[in-house]
């Protein structure tokens, strides 16, 4: 009986380890998208995906280490990543509008047009 329980735990831990490794690889793929992404929205979408994957990773780790408090961190992480996307997109919309109002005034017509990423 003792041996069977340990085998069960071993199977569970092996499954978690495999899933964690694959999620780590996907994490780096999303990071590549965030670096490559030609526009700001691309990068923000990649950051959003990374956030979702990290949430699953934290939840798996909380079962792997049998530490329940990690799930609280998972909840807070969800809120923080949502807030990050909201704030960053608002900030970029604000930057764009500011640049456009400057262009209309004619103060800096050409220097700002070069960074197309924004």
């Amino acid at each position: 009986m003792e041996k069977e329980v340990s085998l069960f735990l071993q199977a569970q831990r092996g499954l978690f380890l495999v899933i964690l490794i694959v999620l780590g690889l996907l994490f780096f793929a999303a990071l590549v998208r965030a670096v490559k992404g030609p526009r700001v929205a691309d990068r923000l979408v990649a950051v959003n995906m990374i956030g979702t994957m990290v949430m699953v990773m934290i939840a798996i780790l909380s079962l792997y280490w049998q530490e329940e408090y990690l799930l609280d961190i998972c909840l807070i992480y969800a809120m923080a990543s949502f807030l990050a996307v909201i704030v960053l997109s608002k900030v970029y919309i604000g930057i764009y509008e500011e640049q456009h109002s400057e262009e209309e005034k004619g103060t800096k017509p050409d220097s700002r047009k070069e960074d197309k990423g924004v």
Partner: peptide
């Protein structure tokens, strides 16, 4: 929250491109 952030990202893209 996912629909909200998707909507904001789409608005960012449509507004700035």
């Amino acid at each position: 929250t996912s629909p909200v952030s998707s909507h904001l990202l789409a608005r960012l893209e449509a507004g700035t491109n």
